[in-house]
Design a binder for these strands. Structure first.
Length: 316
DNA sequence: CGAATAATAT
DNA sequence: CATATTATTC
């Protein structure tokens, strides 16, 4: 299996490119610093901490945790009593199988290399959002990272991911064409990009020909996706049965993060530290990724049409 | 910052 | 052992 294998939850209409993605130059002209400063001062609630997969390698006591919150979008299983239908700031649900294992829990020694970052669909979505809202021009690792405001995320992480993402885009443009635009569309993806396919790729990146004025094209949101709904659900259910194949989300980390079916947990270090110590940058970072409504796949076969998610841009 | 390459995980 | 994903280096 490829690295991760739980992304086939094809969900599409989960994200809608906001008009902001067009990145009006006005934003670029205004003082970004001010905007940023304002932003971070007034909110920065969307603190996403990333959870990383701890590999039991032969590493010396290497524990990483002080900065990883796991956020994943698990399909709602019928047996899942949790009400994960909230639209608050962070639409992420933490699923921890269980902990409590007598984990000695060595305190994490800072300065230890952290384990590989796991780019969960959610995280990737945030990434894409950031990039989309920034525009190709400013979509550089540093800016993206700052916009994402994900605790623990480093520029290197973003850079690496961005690299791959760009390749994915290029690849997709190169061959297909079309239509499928987004995410695989024409069928299952090449397999090398499960993750990317999972996220609603922004309208169109790679439009390098835009040397002239900004001419935003009418973003064609992914047209109606077809089947795969119940199937996904079934698959999800099945997946749940195999914790082994499940996303590497839960692990007996440092014993904490217990996010029982209540979705109510408070960790000592959950809050994200306002280390927004950014120095001036010529990036028009207006507002951090606007609203990112989580995908709430509702099976509304009865006329209930799922409109594209809205964008609480005002927020964060 | 960006691409190549190494390392690591599955 | 192959492939995919992320980290590190250039």
């Amino acid at each position: 299996m490829r690295e991760e294998d739980s992304n086939w939850f094809s969900r599409w209409e989960e994200e809608l490119p906001s008009p902001e993605e067009l990145m009006p130059l006005s934003q670029t002209l205004i003082t970004p610093d001010l905007a940023i400063a304002f932003d971070i001062t007034t909110n920065n609630n969307n603190t996403i901490i990333i959870q990383q997969q701890q590999n039991l390698q032969l590493q010396p006591q290497q524990q990483q945790q002080s900065l990883h919150l796991l956020q994943q979008q698990l399909p709602t299983t019928p047996s899942n009593p949790i009400t994960q239908q909230q639209q608050p700031s962070s639409g992420d649900f933490a699923d921890s199988g269980e902990l409590g294992s007598g984990n000695g829990a060595d305190e994490p020694a800072r300065t230890l290399k952290r384990p590989r970052l796991v780019w969960t669909p959610n995280l990737h979505k945030r990434f894409v959002d950031a990039v989309a809202h920034l525009g190709i021009k400013n979509a550089v690792p540093k800016t993206i990272m700052q916009l994402m405001s994900v605790d623990g995320l480093t520029r290197e992480n973003v850079a690496s991911h961005l690299q791959k993402y760009r390749l994915y885009l290029k690849r997709m443009q190169g061959l297909s064409g079309g239509g499928s635009g987004g995410g695989g569309g024409g069928g299952v993806d090449a397999a090398t990009d499960h993750l990317f396919a999972s996220s609603p790729v922004p309208p169109h990146f790679l439009q390098q020909g835009r040397a002239n004025s900004d001419h935003f094209l009418p973003f064609v949101q992914v047209p109606a996706l077809q089947h795969h709904h119940q199937m996904a659900a079934a698959a999800a259910a099945t997946a749940v049965q195999h914790p082994q194949l499940q996303q590497p989300q839960y692990h007996r980390q440092v014993g904490h993060f217990g996010s029982p079916p209540n979705g109510h947990f408070e960790h000592p270090f959950l809050s994200r530290q306002p280390q927004q110590q950014l120095h001036r940058m010529g990036a028009p970072v207006h507002s951090p990724v606007a609203g990112y409504v989580e995908d709430k796949e509702s099976e509304n076969a009865s006329g209930g049409r799922k409109v594209l998610t809205l964008f609480p841009t005002g927020d964060d």
